[in-house]
Computed example of a mutant assay.
Amino acid sequence: MAPSGKPHCDTFDLIRALAAGTVCVSHLRNLMFADYHANAGIGLAAKAFYFVSNYGHTAVIVFFLLSGYFVGGSVLRQSAAGTWSWPRYLTERLSRLWVVLIPALLLTLFWDRMGIALAGGPFYLGTEGTFDQQINVVSHLGQATFACNLVFLQTLACGTYGSNGPLWSLANEFWYYLWFPACFVLLRQRRGIRAFAAAAFAVGTMVAFPSLLSGFGLWLLGVLLVVLEQRFPARSARTGWPWFTLASGAALLAALVCSRLFLLANDWIVGVPCFAFLHCILWENVRLRPALLSRIAIRFSGFSYSLYLTHFSFILFVAAVGVGRRIPFDGHGALVFAGMLVLCYAYAYAVYLLFEQNTRRVQRGLQQLRFLGIRPDSPAPHSPSRGGIG
């Protein structure tokens, strides 16, 4: 990494792309390969693979921080400029989420129904032994569960739809998107009864959904990154290495290792060092070099949301129909892993081209609907290609 005058933080794009890949790798390993203890006499390389390939949940923490930075930061900036409004914000956020979520739910239905019809068995009954799939998928494919996931109440009022367990974090993101502006706008602007009603709704749902509060704290750390960025502007120039970024990165790496070695389940153990690392990247103005790496990071970050929402049911289908059982991670297993990973990325990129890539087009179309009360010339609060999971 190297400093440059690029205003866009492609380093964050790289982190987002790696986080999405980490989630995919974790699920691929758990669904297709036997557990570590079932692989007797495996070599050092396989042991290393099992150690580093189980950070899927940790990657979601990174998504929360990035989401707070981009989405929460847009609320701060537009509120300060007097351009923020609920109609535009909700239209941008909901269209961004639904443009991929609706196809993802339908694809989950397709792959799960196909898998149940062609193979069925332990993978879809939740009895194969994998930690990531322990439910009877058929019982989660009803219309009520579909609708519940569509309005972001999964894990709160229903289960996640079908086999698509990663949908749990989308409920977190949605409610954080509502909670922060509802409280911030009241404190910042105090715009009458509507602002008080929105804040009361936010506090009421916080009380109703206490399981989301810890993640909301991590999300707010992402907002704090924006505040610190404004208080302590990035260095315009420097010579030598970005020592603070390297030191905070080392601390984050140590936290990641310790969380695996000692089975530390508290998300803040990784969340706080990650916050420090992201802040140092911004403060030392660290950007990617060479330009090819920057372009790759931006490209892979661009469809990370599609990858996150669509990979699980696809992998489960291949594991159940194409393989039939979890296999050991040996030489053949490594080839299967590499091939499946490439296939997952190709599949997610196709979904991106069909749906996610058109997010801005959908949003511009919605801006033309006068009953929404959106001014087309207002700046969008959040670029569709950046942010957290969504």
Rank of each mutant, 00 (worst) to 15 (best):
C274E: 04
G56W: 01
A46H: 10
V223H: 00
E128Q: 15
A208T: 14
F51P: 03
I193F: 15
A2F: 10
D112P: 01
F152V: 08
D377Q: 12
A34R: 06
S259T: 13
H27Q: 13
A255E: 01
R370V: 06
I281N: 00
L187S: 11
V151H: 08
A182Y: 00
T58R: 11
E173Y: 04
G129C: 11
C344T: 15
E356T: 06
A17W: 06
R194P: 00
G56K: 07
R238P: 05
C158I: 15
Y36C: 14
S214A: 08
L66G: 08
F209S: 13
P7S: 06
L218Q: 06
P7E: 05
I193Y: 08
L94V: 10
N30V: 15
V270Y: 04
G204V: 08
F110H: 05
P242A: 14
A234Y: 00
R191C: 04
I389M: 08
V71T: 01
L221D: 04
Q368L: 07
S26Y: 11
L253G: 14
I61G: 08
L213D: 00
V362S: 09
F201P: 05
S74W: 02
A40Q: 14
T310N: 03
A320G: 15
L186T: 13
F146M: 10
A334V: 06
R235M: 12
P273T: 10
M114C: 12
S301Y: 02
G165M: 13
L66R: 04
D267G: 15
C280F: 04
G322I: 01
A171T: 03
A297L: 09
F70M: 14
H279K: 04
A40Y: 01
L109E: 11
G204A: 11
L288S: 06
D330T: 03
W175Q: 09
F303P: 00
F371V: 13
S383D: 05
L261C: 02
F314S: 05
D377T: 05
A334C: 00
N39P: 00
C158T: 11
A2W: 03
A265M: 13
A48W: 04
L31G: 05
T205D: 15
I315C: 05
V336H: 15
A276Y: 00
H311I: 08
A119E: 09
A81Y: 15
A171D: 02
W268A: 10
N149F: 07
F317Q: 00
Y305E: 00
S385P: 07
L261I: 09
S248M: 12
M1A: 08
W243F: 06
Q368R: 13
V25K: 12
L282K: 05
C158S: 11
S248E: 06
A276L: 14
G165Q: 15
L167H: 12
G333F: 04
P3Q: 08
G159I: 11
L125Q: 15
L150M: 14
G121K: 12
V207T: 09
P87D: 13
L264P: 03
L220T: 05
F49C: 10
A200M: 02
W111D: 01
C274R: 07
A234R: 02
Y352C: 06
M206V: 12
D35N: 03
L156V: 12
R188G: 01
A144S: 13
G331R: 00
E356K: 09
W219A: 01
V185L: 13
L178A: 06
G387C: 04
A319S: 12
